[in-house]
């Protein structure tokens, strides 16, 4: 059995079973979106605990429609992400991620991966640990240059992918 005590995803030392997750550095497809998995099971950090970090997207800014996340919460998380644009504007958009500990997708996410639950001295059956695939809308039609993560230690992000802006869709018919 692998080391079950070093993950410490939550305050009780529960964590994911790395052997049940895709290998680090590999591309995985969830919801038709490709993510690059972080290296897991090495003892090195494999997720970002949100504490207001700023992700600079660099000079190759482009239009985007969605920010897709592989993420998990220590209980249900409902917070805001700051989207920064090339013209200096900033939009706050909701980010909603369900509990990783034996929970359904409260916000309509896709279950990306579920593993056995690690406890400090054993592996627990019947309590799944889940990484969710969630998305955040990018509504402004301007190049996205940076992402400000929330100040919320309950939210953990494993991977993120920007979906480029698609061709303009046909207008929906508003009947009411």
């Amino acid at each position: 059995m692998s080391n079950t005590s070093s993950g410490r995803f939550n305050v009780w030392g529960n964590s994911f079973a790395a052997e049940d997750l895709p290998a680090g550095g590999t591309g995985v497809v969830v919801d038709a979106v490709t993510f690059t998995m972080p290296p897991t099971g090495t003892g090195a950090p494999d997720n970002v605990r949100c504490a207001g970090q700023y992700l600079d997207l660099g000079p190759q800014a482009d239009l985007a429609d969605w920010l897709y996340l592989l993420a998990a919460g220590e209980r249900r998380v409902e917070d805001e992400i700051a989207l920064h644009f090339a013209d200096g504007s900033v939009d706050f958009e909701p980010v909603r991620v369900s509990d990783f500990w034996a929970a359904p997708p409260a916000f309509g996410e896709t279950k990306a991966f579920a593993t056995l639950m690690h406890y400090p001295i054993h592996t627990q059956f019947g309590v799944p640990a889940t990484i969710w695939c969630q998305r955040v809308p990018v509504t402004r039609r301007a190049p996205l240059t940076g992402i400000g993560l929330p100040h919320n230690v309950a939210l953990h992000i494993f991977a993120a992918t920007l979906q480029p802006a698609a061709a303009r869709p046909a207008a929906l018919e508003v009947t009411r």
């Binding site: 209980r75 909603r96 230690v153 309950a154």
Partner: peptide
């Protein structure tokens, strides 16, 4: 949504 706002407060205190 108010219920979910308890998470940030509780987990911040727990850690």
């Amino acid at each position: 949504s108010a219920a979910h706002a308890w998470t940030g407060l509780r987990v911040t205190a727990a850690h």
